[in-house]
Write a protein that binds this DNA or RNA. Structure first.
Lengths: 204, 204, 204, 204
DNA sequence: CATGAATGAGCTTTCATTCAT
DNA sequence: AATGAATGAAAGCTCATTCAT
């Protein structure tokens, strides 16, 4: 009935994950050795392999949490009445997530360049977001039958903008003011949405 | 009278660069060994080091060409009279460049995660673009005195959108139709520009 | 109660040192590869680097012991009453040290030609000896005010004689009878000392 | 009839030897690469092998000249009437030779640690000197039949002293004043000779 | 004779992973 | 569970030597 206290094993695994975040932050995915992780965790070399098969397995653990948050954000209900509020909510959600998990996201994307599993996870997460945004755009621009870019392309572009801006800013450290940055993203997204909704594409 | 034919050394260096592109394309920056390059170039291991100090030096050679194209694009005159035409020109320029040099760009960005020189080159290239676009936006929105996101943030967002979309599409292989994709990017960029120019920010 | 037995690590390190002496003896400092050492020690290549950063680090370990013995010899009290006995004691001390540690000394001097750390250690060891002998000579020849070589030069010459003779004999293998060799060194040293003491320099 | 001017080949070979001296002086025997020699000589890599089979062959050329001077010194007549003058003559001869040819001698001795041919040349040169000095000492001490070190051992010690002192001073750079240094060497050598001649060995 | 590109054996060092304790 | 010594497969890089031009 009572919450069981963490076992020794759980504590060790947790220390390994924390140590890995530190090592990845300081050294990057490729440069970080198992040695760097166990040193920071204060455990022996061999202990690492009691918990994880290798560095990738540990990262998978870390990434899954972040990925879950992202999926939740994509799946959350989208308020149809307050368009601008909905946009701002999603954008700041993404920004907060990047700010909170910069290290894991950076490492994830780095690993994605070499490891198909991480790459697929990224591609899927992104696709989910794009699909969601495309549906939203389609609903708004249903009336427009004229020649115009597909909602999917516009959605892909808007999602690319938000994720890459957040990455450059919060992961790579490009300096930005939070309010100004979010305002810019909301502005671009919102005007694009208006444009589609107004079906004034041909007149731009 | 005649253009001098390439010397043997020039031919060998050129074969190494070509082989490196292949190796990077197939194996990625980290996994590609000098061995993989020389095997493809059909030269001995030692020959590699006659031309390049190491893998990074070779990539630098490849990247410099692409980076030069990018810089040229950013520096090219921006036609003030045909706004939409100018946007389309820049966007398709970036898209063409990514399409042509997908391997080099992919490798460059991969190396940028571990090597400061490549990272700085990327950061500088991007900054150049953002600055250029921000100037363009500022000119267009000069009249607007109302509270609005800074031109720099909007520029950063738009450039992030274009480069990341191009990357996802042409480097990572996300499927898109060329015309539709460019139309989407031009739409978003153009409406954002209009919005700033009309100074209707507060009413969105 | 009992002295702790050597740990596995201590035993391995010790085997590496022993193996290195063998390898240096057979192949010389430059020709001896890490491979030659680990083969003789019966450990894997990687194990070497668990204990030493490189070949030089291992030699440093070996040299420090010999150098310590040499320093102890130079620092030991010098019996003032029995001049000849003192000389003989020092000379046979040096000879014994060279005989015991021929391999290490040979390797040390070989490495000293390329590695400043080893060179400095040799220069310092020698300087210590020379200084010590010069003081001894100065004391003996204090009465002599006439123009004569400085005690330092004579000391440098005598120390050069002993160390190089020992080197030629015990390291390079020039054949000598121990008693005869020591008698010769003691003779030369002793007569030089007498000469200085008698202040008969100008009459030679 | 006229002295033929040096052929191109002779000039190239000569430049290689000069360049090698420079390279050995700056880098030492082991560190100096064929590359370092040809660069200084201003010839191509391949040209080196037109003249010498390898680095050792070139050094052999350089060493033979120095070795010839040494042999000449050892073979020169020894003036029986002026003992002190003879000693001084030989010692300053050795010193001058070391001063003049410091680089070649240093390189020779360095190579002698790894190459038997150079080692044998050194051993033979030294033996020749020792034999010569031993004969001289024997003549001087012929009357002495008492238990004493053999002339050969004393000769070996004296020669060791002179060569090593000269080496430390003129090759390794131990600082000495020329007159004082030669006076010290002459003093030690002379007193040893006197001692043997006086047959007062047992009374020291 | 001279050139210099090409060769490839050889050496050092790293590090993920195993396993006896 | 934890330890940490041992392993050995990879790489990177160097440089003496060759040889086509």
């Amino acid at each position: 009935m009572t919450a069981t206290p963490p076992t020794r094993a759980e504590r060790t695994a947790s220390r390994l994950r924390l140590a890995a975040r530190e090592a990845f932050a300081e050294l990057g995915w490729n440069a970080a050795r198992v040695e760097d992780i166990v040193k920071r965790a204060g455990v022996s070399h061999g202990t690492f392999y009691t918990y994880y098969d290798n560095k990738s397995a540990l990262l998978r653990d870390l990434v899954e949490a972040s990925q879950g948050d992202l999926a939740a954000l994509a799946a959350a209900p989208w308020r149809g009445d307050d368009v601008r509020g909905a946009i701002e909510h999603v954008i700041s959600g993404v920004v907060d997530l990047f700010a909170r998990d910069a290290v894991v996201i950076k490492t994830w994307l780095q690993a994605a360049r070499e490891d198909d599993a991480f790459r697929d996870l990224y591609v899927d997460s992104r696709a989910m977001f794009v699909r969601r945004v495309a549906e939203h755009l389609s609903a708004a621009s249903a009336a427009s039958g004229r020649r115009s870019p597909s909602a999917r392309s516009v959605a892909a572009a808007l999602v690319a903008m938000v994720e890459h801006f957040a990455y450059l800013w919060l992961v790579l450290g490009e300096p930005h003011d939070r309010d100004d940055a979010i305002a810019a993203l909301v502005l671009v997204w919102g005007t694009a949405l208006n444009e589609l909704a107004d079906a004034r594409l041909a007149t731009v």
